[in-house]
């Protein structure tokens, strides 16, 4: 399906400690205004291999809208409060906690499970990590998912958010017993 890469990719590097005045921007983590009908929260904590929170991580999400449509609208950096662009960015707080205000992504096809695509950056992390955040609602759908089926049973739960009162909780473990499943895509 993918054509053969002919050029070697430029290497990644750590985001370092000083991105905090550069990458975050007003409204970065609010894909929709908090009060909007259907608004949910996706939040969680980033942990290191000693189980300590990581206070200098940056999380990005990219998702379909409630109907499963992939937004082709610009405006993620200067939100107008109405257009859904599908992209959000959140620096963690001093306790390693990130939080997005967004909508529940819809399935992009019949029987397809909905998920947030997620990227993780941190000081001490030499390259970005990719993962997926699946929603816990429909177990039958999750059971049929190609990626989840290919992950060892005992690690599958690291890819599935937990519901809470406002939306979903998804913790990220960079290392350790609960280490999150991170993804490598072909050609990377």
């Amino acid at each position: 399906m993918s054509s053969q890469a002919i050029l070697a990719a430029t290497p990644g590097q750590t985001v370092g400690p000083f991105y905090g005045y550069a990458l975050p921007y007003p409204g970065d983590s609010e894909l929709v205004p908090a009060g909007r009908a259907g608004a949910i929260r996706l939040h969680g904590t980033v942990y290191d291999g000693a189980g300590q929170p990581v206070p200098d991580a940056l999380i990005e999400i990219w998702q379909a809208d409630e109907n499963g449509a992939v937004s082709r609208a610009g405006g993620s950096l200067r939100r107008d409060g109405f257009s859904f662009t599908g992209f959000g960015r959140a620096a963690v707080d001093p306790e390693g906690h990130y939080s997005f205000t967004t909508v529940r992504p819809g399935p992009t096809g019949d029987g397809a499970p909905a998920f947030f695509a997620m990227t993780v950056f941190a000081r001490g992390l030499l390259n970005r990590l990719f993962t997926r955040v699946y929603l816990p609602d429909h177990e039958a759908v999750l059971d049929g998912d190609r990626l989840l089926r290919s992950v060892a049973e005992e690690r599958r739960s690291t890819l599935v958010a937990e519901a809470d009162a406002d939306g979903y909780v998804f913790d990220i473990h960079l290392q350790g017993d609960d280490e999150t499943v991170f993804l490598a895509f072909p050609g990377a």
């Binding site: 990219w62 998702q63 992939v70 937004s71 610009g74 405006g75 992390l125 490598a184």
Partner: peptide, 29 residues
């Protein structure tokens, strides 16, 4: 990096749906 690198190999995945697209940024951004 000692406590912040994944110890398990990354899981190979084929990109699907949303992953085949990227956010759009425009002049207004």
């Amino acid at each position: 990096s000692l406590l912040r690198h994944p110890t398990k190999d990354p899981h190979h995945a084929d990109p699907e749906t949303i992953e085949l697209f990227a956010p759009v940024f425009g002049q207004r951004d």
